[in-house]
Amino acid sequence: MKCHDDALIRLFHVYKRYGAKNALFDISLDIFKNEFLFLTGPSGAGKSTLLKLLYLGESLSEGQILIDRMNLARVSRKRAPELRRKLGIIFQDYKLIPTKTVYENVSLVLEARGMSHKFIQKKVHSVLRTVGMEKRKKSFPPGLSGGEQQKVAVARAVVGEPKIILADEPTGSLDADSAGTIFDLLTNIHARGATVLVATHDAELIRSAKGRVIQLKEGKVVAE
């Protein structure tokens, strides 16, 4: 057992309620630096909710969450950008900006970090090439298939080389080939030191990887 202080992400008796409904119920969990962790479980188990709490997309109802020494229960909203820059998030519904091109959607992350124009150009092209979307860089998201949008969402999440990747069904809309590419990309980032958290019910994906698996059901951890 590793020492608690090593935990990059700590959840301590976390509850999330929507009205009377418990989306998450008493979750305690330590995620360590450079871990590859799967969150799995049936629809409505609370996987997305858990990820939302981690990126301050929702506020928790009870308990404590520590990420990289930042206490999310207490932190002011003003520090959300600081937290989110450490994260690369792949949203279940992609959340691409419909009025910006594929290229702009991805480059935005680096622009917001004040990177140089040249660096951004190089980096964005390389990431788009990796996910196989370089040819569509001038397209707008509504003109892309679900799978293509997902690839762009993945590109945007990894382009800033974040410490932590939060991936919500990153291969949900992809064929086996593309899913393999995306998965290789995540493994690659993991190998370079990132902590990767993947919410999925893709059993195939879980079986092929060697990460820790946390199983949720009705908001509770049922197996680890």
Binding site: P81, R84, I89, I97, L108, E111, A112, R156, G160
Partner: peptide
């Protein structure tokens, strides 16, 4: 008219200043 765009930008870590 750009509410969605702004919400997404915030989610990927852009500051309000940006």
């Amino acid at each position: 008219s750009r509410q969605e765009e702004i919400a997404i930008m915030r989610l990927v870590g852009t500051t309000d200043r940006f």
